[in-house]
Design a binder for these strands. Structure first.
Lengths: 223, 223
DNA sequence: GTTGAAGCGGAGGCAACTCTCCGCTTGGCG
DNA sequence: CGCCAAGCGGAGAGTTGCCTCCGCTTCAAC
């Protein structure tokens, strides 16, 4: 893979001011995408970066180019998480640990879900990242199942929808109670284990009624 | 509670043609809300009902009035589900059965989630319905916990977010594989039980890769 | 310093959506 | 039947969000 600053191969380097603006745009997009997802107005990105809209659209002909460039660093973190997990001693803690860490990345960055899960998002780079990650998690799941710890009726195709589920919680509550998703992640992971006994510990407390109302209103407003 | 056709008390009855149009609007809104949620354009409702936009806005001064009127029948079904469940012999199957049936209603009707969960949606009627339902499910949960079958760290305030989670799956897949939500509902319910052993049975098969791709694209497009 | 290509900003076109307004139509009472 | 209050439809105003275009500015090569 060549240097990250040259999108097209052997493109003539940008003028100094142009390169500076390009960096600013990427930095602003990273912040805003993480916070509000990849479908925000590029006008907002331009304003945040202190450049005109025209500049954004000139540098990134469409939203997907911008996404492709921005998110491939983030997906690389998911990939290395999966590789580490494959090296873990215990197959179950490898699998469950990976899942929890991946969910943490999703909770911190809304755009990650859209980039990793939606196959039409981004361009070649993102597609390649997805293709690298998939066999890794499939292997993680198989090992945990062979060890008898992950329920046998789980299939690795379930993962995107599990992410979708927990992400629905973090989207709804990240303003009100940013760590609450862990409670529901724990619940899901408990449901994935072959067996379980005893009271368990969901970790983070449930929301009280007042905060719950806040959260549901906020998430409905955001939509 | 007085007759459903008089929104305001003692309002003079509508002219015959007006009443007919009102019914048509409600019927169309029921169909479209269930399919696409309560935030669709009221222009669409008007077109579907075969009336002009003006007619819709004259009869229902704002969206919330329409929602309030439409959804209180649906919420009544949730309420009676909860009452039935309280009469069940086994506290756990009462709780779990209620949850699964409630999730089924949510899977069939997107607007239900918005009406029941978001406290700012609708007007007095819906608020009253929410207030009636809450203590019922709290009691269901308490009984199941006292019987030692529902994990003790569950709190009934978790329910809205559990609904949110499973609804995220049905929203994503209701076009591609309408029954798939059951698989994930089962998983969550398994996670809620105090203990569980053996392979379990998630019911509906996971999506194969092709359908999964379809589902994720569709849900992203809809958003 | 001069010059032209590269780059810039933001006005404005276009599309989707919500809701209002007003001239025409119609039901039903006397 | 004749009348008019009640009702109707849909044009269009106001808004928001995406993206294009073009006249002006700036860089950097010479």
């Amino acid at each position: 893979m060549t240097d990250a600053s040259q999108t097209a191969v052997a493109a003539r380097p940008l003028r100094r001011d142009a390169e500076r603006n390009r960096k600013r745009i990427l930095a602003s997009a990273a912040v805003l995408f993480a916070e509000r997802g990849v479908d925000i107005g590029l006008d907002d990105v331009a304003r945040h970066a202190g450049v005109g809209v025209g500049t954004v659209y000139r540098r990134f002909p469409d939203r997907e180019t911008l996404i492709d460039e921005l998110l491939d660093e983030k997906t690389a973190r998911v990939e290395s998480l999966a590789r580490e997990a494959l090296g873990a001693d215990d197959p179950w803690s490898g699998f469950a640990g990976f899942l929890e860490q991946a969910l943490e990345l999703h909770a911190e960055d809304r755009s990650l879900k859209q980039a990793l899960l939606v196959p039409t998002r981004g361009k070649e780079r993102l597609a390649a990242a997805r293709a690298r990650i998939e066999p890794l998690v499939a292997e993680l799941a198989t090992r945990a199942q062979d060890a008898g710890e992950l329920r046998p009726d789980f299939r690795f195709e379930d993962l995107p929808l599990l992410v979708e589920m927990v992400a629905a919680v973090s989207d709804a509550t990240h303003e009100t109670e940013p760590g609450l998703w862990r409670r529901y992640a724990r619940l899901v992971i408990d449901g994935l284990a072959t067996s379980r006994t005893g009271p368990g510990d969901l970790g983070a407390d449930a929301l009280d009624r007042e905060h719950l109302v806040d959260a549901l209103c906020t998430s409905a407003r955001e939509r």
